[in-house]
Nucleic acid binder design. Structure first.
Lengths: 306, 306
DNA sequence: TGCTGCTATAGATTTGCTCTATAATATGCC
DNA sequence: GGCATATTATAGAGCAAATCTATAGCAGCA
């Protein structure tokens, strides 16, 4: 891994050049010199220096996130090669949101495990952007998610569509919205819950000019009464309040068991595409393609068609 | 990006050390030396060398894929930082209160986005002092607000007046204040609502000796029955109680639609000036001045004249 | 056998990294 | 106010390492 970036990470973690120097077992002037050089090559100030240490600038923050990612990718590469040398197949790890996992990925993974007990598939659950992160750093080989709107194409992912899904709205039993079909405005009168937590550090994945959604919604942090990356927490919140949980309709049956019911929609809902995200680089690898085929087949029997 | 990995990619692409040397503008022995070193640090042979060139081993293949990814990640990072620079140093984030946003800034920003999709204007909504904070820390380039009374001149802001506005008082239908003109004392007998949330950490912006009104009122927590940074919340409160919402008169039409009506004032209302705050040091920057011109033009057609 | 690609090796050169020593500056404490 | 103690910045010396030049070795091919 690049020396300057490694040093940059150490400095950022330590919060000071001298602290970083201590952990790196080099001297502080060296770091002063090298970080200045890094700033020159990047073309932006990375630190605000003061007599109390250094603080990352916004550019430094961006670099930090990405350098961390590169660092992880590098480590993963080394251990992948080491695995190859030992002859142990590297396990495939699949990322997924909880919905897909519960719906059909679970069975698929269990079958796979029975078929290839020596090289099982592992699963990492999380939200889309987190999974994207993990895929880029080599932690997972592919993941299932909604098509991500406005994703920067230069990060080099393939998207394989599997199914059309729409967002449904779920509320607790006896909620005023239930009983008759409702339009969007009626639904919006209630507080909203969404089960994803956009983190600003993921903004780098997006290409603002490509977003279909209108500008306002991007800035609207107040539109949702409750946001969480935990679906269970969202369900709890929906059960306890009048708020409306918006989520893929494919979870309807599971939600019904928890006590949440779908609000009938009087307007045609907005359709999303769900599918598999995979790195362009990994297309063509035998096991990856095999897994994609299996997932596609399972999706074809379980999910609404395209 | 790491030098050895870059060279590795070039060699792999060229299919030979000497070919890679040619594209990298270095000599072949250097590459021989460096690739051997890379193999040592990785701990696996990366090439099969022959007198016809080199071929990747399976370890080399693995490294190649991941190095490509790292390469892309690095390039993406650089361009993300470059975008950030455009978006902050040269390009623009505009701050605004919700009223100005809804009234004319929204359209202006959307037009701007269409005109310059690569360097759009971003918007940060919030109250005056928060915006001031953000401008001073470089997050936004300029913002729209009322002239802030008693602002400490040493913080280095320019104020460009755009419009005269006055504070009007809004109440729900059937409110006792409606029907006849009222003076300030009569209005003050009702609880007050204000749609801004002063934070005490902003006190540093003020120069007490210059204030026309007394400092206390700004940070006075008791004077208002309800304060929120959410205008929607204030409207809800005004609709549900007898309290009086004080807000710029320019929002009158919007409020009427929500069910709030203006109280006639028997005394000449206090006139405020609304305009653009911008850092002195950013005056003269082409895009900043362009944006100021656009905002001024839009304000001239939408807002009451000075 | 000699020509033409290629990689490998040895040693000279020079680049540039890292170190030591010290200055400059801010912060906190007495 | 002034001293102690953090921090970063700077200058110059020394040295490690990257790169180059020159040449050897090797395989394929006519």
């Amino acid at each position: 891994m690049d020396k300057l970036l490694t040093q940059f990470l150490a400095v950022a973690d330590a919060g000071s050049l001298s602290g970083g120097a201590t952990t790196l077992l080099i001297t502080q002037p060296t770091l002063t010199f090298n970080m200045r050089k890094l700033e020159e090559t990047i073309g932006a100030p990375l630190f605000e220096r003061s007599s109390r240490g250094v603080r990352l600038t916004r550019y430094g923050e961006t670099l930090y996130e990405n350098a961390r990612l590169m660092n992880r990718l590098y480590d993963n590469t080394l251990s992948a090669i080491a695995d190859q040398q030992r002859g142990t197949e590297r396990g495939l790890t699949v990322g997924s949101g909880y919905s897909w996992w519960a719906m059909f990925l679970k069975d698929l993974v269990i079958d796979y495990q029975l078929e290839f007990p020596k090289a099982p598939v592992q699963v990492s659950l999380g939200n889309q952007l987190r999974l994207l992160d993990q895929m880029l750093s080599g932690d997972i080989s592919l993941f299932l998610a909604h098509e991500i709107d406005g994703l920067n194409p230069s990060i080099g992912t393939d998207f394989i569509p599997l199914s059309r899904v729409y967002n449904a709205h779920f509320v607790h039993q006896g909620h005023p919205l239930l009983g008759v079909p409702r339009n969007r405005a009626e639904i919006n009168e209630y507080p909203q819950i969404i089960s994803s937590l956009a983190e600003s550090r993921h903004e780098r994945f997006f290409d603002i000019s490509r977003r279909r959604t209108r500008v306002e919604t991007v800035f609207d942090r107040t539109h949702y009464a409750f946001r969480s990356n935990s679906l269970a927490a969202c369900i709890d919140y929906a059960l306890a309040t009048e708020a409306v949980l918006t989520h893929t309709h494919v979870m309807r049956d599971a939600f019904t068991k928890s006590g949440l019911f779908e609000v009938e929609q009087s307007e045609p809902p907005r359709i999303n595409v769900a599918g598999i995200y995979v790195l362009k680089e990994r297309r063509g690898e035998e096991r990856v393609e095999d897994l994609i085929a299996r997932i596609s087949a399972a999706a074809a029997t379980t999910l609404p068609p395209l």
